[in-house]
């Protein structure tokens, strides 16, 4: 299968890349930014996407990083691959939700090319990273001809396969705010086989201090038309100790927030049940860790 014909540019600087997007002839949906290409290239081959211009950003220097600022803010550059995050010592020691999600993205070969920022831009309702970044209260930094702006992750995705970027903006970085305590949580994904889209995915991101939850974010993958932020479930946890009753209450609220549909991956009822199960599982683990922390 071939993509339909397009013009290809591989700029060497971000300014040049934005300039290419900014030219009027390639405005609107006519131009697409190519990073890892693990969703865009298949879409182009299937002719679901037929951009006139491809701006390949793989040659842009200095975008393949992920790092922590002194205050604990985590920054992930537009060319940081899933595999970099999967093998990251930084995430393994500081960010349990991201560390848990990275090895569950697609399959090992796709993880070598695909990027976290690209996954956010693609805005697939079944994309795992969007749930993780929403649960963590993260944001996306977009750069255009007029400079940079920060877009909260939950406002960045505007619908299925739609994001808040202007046609001449490039998402250059994802930002995770510093923890308010000890970070806890994880990501669980039910999939029929490695590489399949999530039947259900649940991201839980907590900060705890002395066994009490100081901040909680829960977001759901694959159980609605887009990533679902289970805000009420998160609020139910804030300021609380993770007792069995609190966990049950939050899991119930998360299951209520899900909008699953019956399809070949399972019934709506089953998916909702799995949301409850995953939230319970992740919170129970986090509670045990917080208990251990308090005892220590």
């Amino acid at each position: 299968m071939y993509p339909s014909r397009f013009r290809y540019e591989a700029p060497r600087s971000l300014t040049e890349a934005i300039g290419l997007l900014h030219t009027t002839e390639s405005a609107g949906d006519q131009a697409k930014v190519l990073a890892g290409g693990q969703s865009l290239v298949p879409l182009m081959k299937l002719r679901f996407a037929a951009p006139e211009l491809i701006v390949d950003i793989n040659n842009l220097p200095g975008l393949d990083y992920h790092r922590a600022d002194p205050d604990g803010t985590i920054r992930v550059g537009a060319l940081c691959r899933h595999a970099d995050l999967e093998h990251s010592a930084l995430l393994a020691s500081t960010q349990p939700t991201m560390a848990a999600a990275a090895p569950l993205i697609a399959d090992p070969i796709v993880r070598n090319r695909g990027t976290l920022v690209g996954s956010l831009c693609h805005a697939d309702p079944q994309g795992d990273w969007a749930s993780v970044v929403v649960a963590l209260g993260g944001s996306v930094v977009a750069q255009g001809p007029g400079g940079r702006r920060s877009i909260p992750a939950d406002a960045f995705v505007t619908g299925p396969f739609e994001n808040a970027l202007a046609p001449d903006e490039i998402a250059v970085e994802a930002v995770i705010p510093p923890p308010q305590g000890v970070p806890a949580g994880g990501y669980l994904k039910l999939e029929r086989r490695v590489g399949d889209f999530a039947t259900v995915g649940v991201a839980v991101a907590l900060d705890t201090a002395g066994g009490t939850v100081t901040r909680a974010g829960i977001a759901l993958t694959g159980v609605g038309g887009s990533t679902i932020a289970a805000t009420e479930a998160g609020q139910a946890l804030t300021g609380k100790v993770l007792t069995a009753e609190i966990i049950e209450q939050a899991a119930g609220l998360a299951a209520q927030a899900a909008r699953p549909r019956t399809d070949h991956r399972g019934s709506a009822e089953y998916k909702r049940h799995m949301v409850r199960t995953f939230v319970t599982r992740l919170l129970t683990r986090a509670g045990q860790a917080a208990e251990a922390e308090r005892a220590a």
Binding site: Y8, A10, G37, A83, P108, I109
Partner: peptide
Amino acid sequence: CDTTNCGACTVLVDGKAVKSCTMLAVQAD
């Protein structure tokens, strides 16, 4: 599969496994 699922087209690019049906030839430059 030609749809980024099966991995039969896997090659190494700079030592890393990549699905060659999901990368443009120009990107091999």
